[in-house]
């Protein structure tokens, strides 16, 4: 009698424990979303900064019309890639960047334009967005290394959009210097970088004009990475539009 009881309990334990092996889980996300945020003025991916630059906002519409969004960052060269996405229906919007917002609202909240994209992601997907930057920032000539170990650059910035509602006053141009290739407002060395600030509408007069900025002295002998950013007022996220990155070598004659 006792034996039977033991056997029964043993079976009970085996049966209950057995159910533990059935894992109540869904497969890990395995879809890949890649793409570019393209600068309409150049046709190439937009120059931005990594970490603090542009983010891709994902609203998964598979379950709710008003979901809690998730975000991931766009790389410094304007490309993005998220390799861990569940299959589903998504609204995809690049946000936070120095460009005319893809979803524009009036002051009373009406949608003026909406250029976000809704995609059914079933397999790995590539998607491109074209954005109008607030400013287009270009090198006028190559940076010049001066004998006193400073660097002189010449750049110009022009409006990147013809939409007057997004042509704000230009507030500053900034020559960013860093010791590594990730240079921008998120990562620069304040000892060598130089900011040129404009008050009021003074910066607008500089549109299209070549602007010369001279860095502070950089100790040699090594390579620095430089880049110029310019930005406008009333840009909610206060991001810079950038040139591409150029290395400069400081070789002190000893």
């Amino acid at each position: 009698m006792k034996k039977i009881f033991y056997y029964l309990s043993l079976f009970a334990i085996i049966f209950t424990a057995n159910s533990c092996f059935k894992i109540d889980d869904v497969a890990a996300p395995d879809k890949v979303l890649t793409g570019n945020v393209i600068d309409s003025t150049t046709g190439k991916p937009i120059q931005t900064e990594q970490g603090n630059g542009i983010r891709i906002k994902l609203d998964e519409l598979s379950w709710s019309a008003n979901p809690i969004p998730t975000y991931f960052g766009v790389k410094q060269d304007g490309t993005f890639s998220d390799t861990k996405i569940f299959a589903g229906r998504y609204r995809i919007t690049p946000v936070d960047g120095p460009f005319v917002p893809l979803i524009q609202l009036s002051s009373t909240g009406d949608t003026i334009s909406n250029r976000s994209k809704i995609l059914n992601i079933k397999a790995s997907t590539k998607v491109n967005f074209t954005v109008e930057p607030f400013l287009k920032v270009e090198w006028v000539s190559d940076p010049v290394v001066n004998p006193d170990s400073t660097v002189t650059v010449q750049i110009k910035f022009t409006r990147g959009t013809t939409n007057p509602a997004y042509q704000f006053n230009v507030t500053d141009a900034y020559l960013f210097v860093s010791e590594n290739t990730y240079v921008g407002n998120n990562n620069y060395d304040g000892r060598y970088s130089v900011q040129v600030s404009y008050s009021g509408t003074a910066g607008n007069a500089q549109l299209g004009q070549p602007i010369t900025i001279k860095s502070k002295k950089m100790p040699g002998n090594r390579t620095y990475y430089i880049r110029v950013g310019a930005r406008t007022a009333d840009n909610v996220q206060k991001r810079y539009n950038y040139t591409d990155i150029k290395p400069v070598s400081i070789n002190l004659a000893k």
Partner: peptide, 12 residues
């Protein structure tokens, strides 16, 4: 402030 967020009924 320059941040805007509206709900569906247009409330800011």
């Amino acid at each position: 402030n320059s941040v805007q967020l509206f709900d569906q009924s247009g409330k800011r």
